[in-house]
Amino acid sequence: MKTENVFQITNLNLHYGTKQALFDIAMEIPKNQVTALIGPSGCGKSTLLRSLNRMNDLIDNCHVDGLVQYENDDIYDKNYDVINLRTRVGMVFQKPNPFPMSIFDNIAYGPRCQGVKDKKTLNEIVKNALVNSALYDEVKDRLKEAATSLSGGQQQRLCIARAIAMSPEVILMDEPTSALDPIATAKIEELIQELKKDYTIVIVTHNMQQAARISDNTAFFLMGELIEYDKTDLIFSQPSKKQTEDYITGRFG
């Protein structure tokens, strides 16, 4: 079966000042699948994720070499529209980070920044985003309340809803469940399975069981290098590299 790739990464090297964080990364991220990036802390998996929507731009001294293509466009090209990229490649962070506004305003924030003003349209966008992030039933009566009044798991789903409201093509998730309890984690994982139908998802996780449960492809990183990248079943059943096997069997990391 031929799959379409949304991201094509070739020879990606990334430096923070003099320290190199990523070495010669080359990988493709297929459309409408869940791709998990795993590896021990400091292996560069989050750095790679953040280079996909150019959030690394915010870090001083960050220098990127190589090619990252999103739908065949080089996103590190001088003339590339980063704002537009970020509307199409959404992001969910490790710590739930709703804005200090109401639930409604949180979700309407992105569309409003794009210039959507019509109240009816906004209502519809917010409702759809909440329904798709499985949060609607829990918050439908309190949309005007502060987003910070929600529980941690709800806040994280709100952040997913906020990303969905932009109707992106890709959602990047940076350890989205690491700050949550097991029940909230299960809900998010369930949600990711649902979202897979409409969105391409790239998820960074340090929880190997989670990667095994929810992802279609898994990439294993070690010290800034991509060690192995394959179908998730293959990685977890018969890894071809010794380091991968050591990691997933819990010998280090």
Binding site: N53, R86, T87, M91, F93, N97, F99, G110, C113, M166
Partner: peptide
């Protein structure tokens, strides 16, 4: 918190 700024920028806000 920087979280707010990052969340906003990641949503395509200028």
């Amino acid at each position: 918190p920087d979280d707010f700024r990052q969340a906003s920028l990641a949503l395509g806000a200028t």
